[in-house]
């Protein structure tokens, strides 16, 4: 009867984006970010926007949910846009009023920056968080980085830690709620007083929570040992990731997108984006 705790922002679904290999999605996301930053004129930006729309449609995730994802960075977007509008100097003044000078270049830059941030957030979250469970992401990361284990980077250990953290976050949230209720029942007051008083009121919650987390950690270590866990060496996996045709099609697609952006940057005209 607890709140349904879902973390990350995974949206249940079975679209082609959901079914891509997480390793492919990680690589695609990185290449996509590069493509976004390469774009520097109206035409290449238009191509980026078009591709973002296509991805959104393919994901089958409602624009409302995607919009929600942008909300937290709204301030950042507005801030950078304002800076661009007021501080970029160019050759085409539009408004001049005391110390305020707005140039056409500033407006164009602001528009480009807004598009860049929005597309960046929408597309990386579409590939990584909305359509991929945290656990699949961890698995993908582990297998992508597996070669690093040769140079003693603890890739498996890191991914095991991630998995366990993901497993225990909901448990600890539930536990926090329980302990808070227990201390409330003894008259603890978490909601009045200044910052310091509130922080102090949390001590009776944090101490039991830490003690319980340590106990759980030690129990879990014992249980893992009893289940013959000896680290990553000699381990097999039940679910082996297998890249398929669709993964390569998408990879090719994003490379083509990058090439398109570079070509348009070079040969198409129109407003350019840049620091004046």
């Amino acid at each position: 009867m607890k709140m349904d705790i879902t973390f990350g922002q995974y949206v249940e679904g079975n679209s082609i984006l959901h079914r891509l290999d997480p390793r492919a999605k990680l690589i695609i996301a990185i290449l996509y970010v590069v493509a976004i930053f390469l774009a520097n004129n109206v035409c290449s930006f238009a191509l980026i926007v078009a591709s973002a729309v296509l991805i959104t449609v393919l994901s089958g995730i409602s624009p409302r949910i995607i919009g929600r994802g942008i909300r937290p960075v709204l301030i950042l977007i507005v801030f950078t846009a304002v800076i661009n509008i007021f501080f970029v100097r160019g050759d085409h003044p539009l408004v001049s009023f005391y110390f305020i000078h707005i140039y056409r270049e500033g407006l164009v830059n602001a528009a480009f920056i807004i598009i860049r941030i929005v597309v960046l957030i929408v597309c990386t979250s579409l590939f990584l968080t909305y359509t991929t469970t945290p656990i699949a992401l961890t698995d993908g990361l582990e297998q992508l980085l597996a070669p690093l284990a040769k140079i003693k980077v603890p890739v498996h250990e890191f991914s095991m830690m991630m998995t366990i953290a993901l497993r225990f976050i909901p448990t600890l949230i539930e536990e926090t709620e329980k302990i808070m209720n227990a201390q409330k029942a003894r008259g603890a007051d978490f909601s009045s007083g200044g910052l310091i008083k509130r922080a102090r009121a949390l001590i009776p919650v944090l101490i039991p929570l830490f003690i319980s987390a340590f106990r759980r950690a030690s129990d879990l270590a014992t249980a893992m040992e009893c289940r013959c866990y000896t680290g990553g060496k000699g381990r097999t996996r039940m679910n082996v990731l297998r890249a398929g045709v669709k993964d390569f099609v998408f990879l090719f697609g994003v490379v083509a997108l990058g090439a398109g952006v570079v070509l348009l940057n070079k040969f198409a005209g129109g407003y350019r984006f840049g620091l004046y």
Binding site: A182, Q183, K184, A185, R186, G187, P204, P208, I211, S212
Partner: peptide
């Protein structure tokens, strides 16, 4: 909450103070 005192399930997990006395004195 002072009139209706509740002892939750597995209440030993709510202990936090340095001494037994301080813990009982919390309420």
């Amino acid at each position: 909450r002072f009139k209706a005192g509740v002892v939750m399930q597995y209440p030993e997990y709510q202990l936090f103070a340095e001494t037994v006395f301080d813990d009982i004195a919390f309420g």
